[in-house]
Design a protein around this nucleic acid. Sequence first.
DNA 1: TTAACATAGTTGCACGTGCAACCAATTTTG
DNA 2: CAAAATTGGTTGCACGTGCAACTATGTTAA
Lengths: 152, 152
Amino acid sequence: MKKDTLETISLIPWIGKTAKYMDYYIGDFMKSNGFNLSKEQFIVLKYLNEKDGRKQNDLAFITNRSKTALTRLIQTMEKKGYVSRSTCEKDMRINHVYLTPYGRETWKKSYPYFLEVVKELQKGIAEEDIMRVQKVMKQIQININLRTTINQ
Amino acid sequence: MKKDTLETISLIPWIGKTAKYMDYYIGDFMKSNGFNLSKEQFIVLKYLNEKDGRKQNDLAFITNRSKTALTRLIQTMEKKGYVSRSTCEKDMRINHVYLTPYGRETWKKSYPYFLEVVKELQKGIAEEDIMRVQKVMKQIQININLRTTINQ
DNA sequence: TTAACATAGTTGCACGTGCAACCAATTTTG
DNA sequence: CAAAATTGGTTGCACGTGCAACTATGTTAA
């Protein structure tokens, strides 16, 4: 009978650790290629490039962040000149977020690098394994989403 | 010919997102079971329970953290009463970290909950898939470690 | 129509992260 | 042995995170 320990039974520490390494590596890679852009900021650029002028709330939702986290992310990006905010005319509570020209340009320039780093991370992994891992990740997310959503 | 996008070719966003969800869920689960204990703090308790009085440097290494991050983690844990620090007699630069009785007790009490939450997250995933995912995670870590180590 | 409620976003707080710079102690080296 | 280099740990800075509490605006219901 195998003893239950976090190591033997579990995927979870593996995923967490790998994600941490990945984050670090991606950040490092982007930095050394001259981009002053966190992974999080990159994701926002991505969604704004798809559809500009999104509401902060929507951005928070599609990026799975609390509205607090999103507020601060946008604040930083605004300081760096990637995006601008403007209050909605019809509902003064709402902020729309827009890419600046610089933001759009940064997105276009950085995207190929992200594709590259992502390929590098996956070197030596068979396509079939990629599919299978995706399937497992989906299952874990299902297990979680049955019970949880970010609150605010 | 399939177009290269982050979604089609990649595992990486999946892993990152899943890890984020997991983190959130684990934290939430522990909190609602009465533990004031982050996943990071839990890991430190785990390693100290295995071997008490480790040097901060060693803890940073085995937990894959910068010494800065570890310093602050230990500071918080000290404030919460889980661990104590004492300067090494033979080399005044070194700090040894010890579990307090409360820290050890917290470890013992919380461990079963971690096992439980981990099992819950993996519900519906075949053992074979777990192995396969572990293999892929290892490969990604290899791809990364060929090029990177945390600096300080 | 005004009072109660809901929604969007911000702020204070606590926590986690890495880098660069720094201090103090120890080791190496000339 | 003294100067230089190395090592262990801390601090300032910038960034990312969620919760609770708050403001301002909008909607709903009495």
